[in-house]
Design a protein around this nucleic acid. Structure first.
Lengths: 348, 348
DNA sequence: TAGCATAATGCAAACGTTTACATAAACCAT
DNA sequence: ATGGTTTATGTAAACGTTTGCATTATGCTA
């Protein structure tokens, strides 16, 4: 007796074998019942298996399944910065949508650093996740290799920085920039400043481009748009410093357009620390409009990304990718972007 | 020929077998080298294996490992609400600490609902995660069962709601409450109101208790502390409604103590929407002090939870649990709570 | 030289699933 | 009755890993 070395598993969870034994059938049958396999199974058998499953509180072990099927129900979300409320809200939205579709979200924070992003991508490959959702990605070697790896990728908020061969979900940033320009023009503001972080990525670049284009199109004789900012990771501090430069100018602009919420937060702190009343003395406009703005940043007008819609949008893109039988079509097909509507919220 | 059905795995990742073949050794040897097994291996062999691993870009597949060892490197974080910046910051901190220790974070949003929490707990069991970190938990049946399941649990910010048999990481909420009371007394405020959400959980309850106790101890003849609030999930809205009630009172309190940041945000919106200037007309004090406060909520004094310390604190608790050879000691031993220091930040 | 400890590596089983294939039972048409 | 088809279920292999045990090669002692 006592032939149980039982090395690894501490507590014996129910397994297919134990359920099969209890139901008096083979493990194959249990598997088929549990998975609703497309074969006919006697009603009595189904009932017996169901009962055994319930009795033993059986749940398929993900490891065995993953090993056999070569994939899991895990979908990874690589976010650049969880400290950013907009990104957290997007993550939450995605989580909700994924859960509703039987997936589990694996959320990571890349801190917008290529090496961390790569490390995570490798890890995701080893975990055999079903797909990866990049919420604000940076270019990295592994990202490029992923094209070949056959794991679907979706880019949220910022487009694929290497080549646009994977779908993008987010707002039309150029159009959003134009909307802000239109609003500025409608207000008759003459002197406009822009605060930006890095402009090498699609979101910021397109926002600025759209904004400037429309101003120029207008033909109105505006003062030249002054731009402040630097590339870096901490938008809050960039915004703060940029606003410092803005206020050091001989003449104060009517409006400062910040390319993200966090830039605006940083700018706000600096401006109000200097005694300025926002928006009385100077208007601030930003992009993103995270969920907290309406509560504690009523001084900030912003282009709203409807983060609560992102989850479903990602799911719809993803399912179309996962359904395509061969991933050849996935590569050949034009990436099917999903543009979600934005809205300029005027406050203050 | 063509004997490759190759049903599941699409792209052939490197495996132990392929590495072994290339290095001219057995898979056992490769495994040992890769894992740094405590056996002597010829230097030349190690080199050959290392080379093959590098050549093929081999990474151990998590599924095989999980199946064999009965556990993974995944640690789940079940957060109540990712939309809460403090919680997001905590998650980010934990992520950082876990990654530094070779774990991967699986982050979920329970929306503070027992059924979702349970569903996730079951899923984590099936995934054979190494441990689960509950950032603000609610009582649920499965949570109770976990005590037997042998999976380590750590409670952050809110204590184990069922029985306190698992460690807690967070601030000393009662002491924080007393600190706020001391500050109010030092300011000579006579008329104090409290805004709270549900009081059935440890964090809010202890904060309020400590606060009221200290006020009473002081012996000063204060007006009775008025309490407003309701139980519910959306602290923002609860705070808003509670402030509405506060302002409907015949006499306006000197200070309103909110048991969380979000409650204060809600209260702030309502108050400033009614024309009040915060903190000139009324002081607001809250608990949590999420990372954004210093930027855009300079009107809010708050007890700061040093969220950036939580990650390391959790790790230290966790490793002591994981190191204990048998989980008997884990259950018998008094839970080793980790109290991190708080600090009352005065602003405005 | 034999005998034996030690060092390095290989063999094979096990972890829990899914699924192609085999089998057995039942039915039906000749 | 016979052969063929359908229906329900079982058998066994495979996924990639870790690890107890067996095996071989090496060095040392007597």
């Amino acid at each position: 007796m006592n032939k149980t070395p039982r090395s690894p598993g501490h507590h014996s969870h129910a397994t297919l074998a134990s359920v099969a034994k209890r139901a008096g059938v083979s493990i194959a049958t249990v598997s088929r019942v549990v998975n609703g396999a497309p074969v006919k199974i006697a009603a009595t058998t189904v009932l017996a298996v169901r009962k055994a499953v319930a009795d033993l509180d059986y749940r398929p072990q993900s490891a065995g399944r993953a090993l056999r099927k070569g994939t899991t129900q895990i979908i990874a979300v690589l976010a650049a910065n969880l400290g950013n409320p907009t990104m957290a809200a997007i993550a939450s939205s995605i989580e909700h949508a994924l859960r509703g579709n039987g997936y589990v979200m694996l959320l990571c924070d890349t801190h917008e650093q290529a090496d961390i992003q790569d490390e995570y991508l490798r890890e995701m490959e080893a975990l055999r996740v079903r797909a990866v959702i990049m919420v604000v990605a940076v270019p990295s070697p592994k990202l490029d290799e992923f094209r070949q790896a056959g794991i679907p990728l979706v880019f949220v908020n910022r487009r694929d920085p290497v080549r646009s061969s994977f779908p993008y979900v987010g707002i039309d940033n150029a159009a959003a920039g134009r909307d802000v320009a239109d609003y500025c023009l409608s207000q008759g503001w003459q002197d406009i400043a822009v605060i930006h972080a890095s402009l090498v990525y699609s979101a910021g670049r397109e926002r600025l481009q759209g904004f400037l284009d429309r101003l120029q199109q207008s033909g109105k004789g505006l003062h030249p748009v002054r731009q402040f900012g630097s590339s870096g990771l901490d938008h809050l501090r960039i915004g703060e410093q940029a606003m410092q430069q803005v206020l050091a100018q001989p003449v104060r602009p009517d409006v400062v357009v910040c390319l993200s919420d966090l830039l605006a937060y940083g700018a706000y702190k600096q401006a109000s620390g200097t005694g300025l009343a926002i928006p009385h003395d100077m208007t601030l406009i930003s992009f993103d409009d995270g969920p907290l703005n309406q509560w504690i940043a009523q001084w900030l007008s912003a282009v709203r990304i409807p983060y609560e819609l992102i989850g479903d949008a990602v799911i719809s893109v993803l399912t179309s990718m996962l359904d395509s039988p061969n991933e050849a079509s996935l590569r050949l097909k034009e990436p099917v972007d999903k543009i979600i509507p934005h809205q300029l919220i005027i406050r203050g």
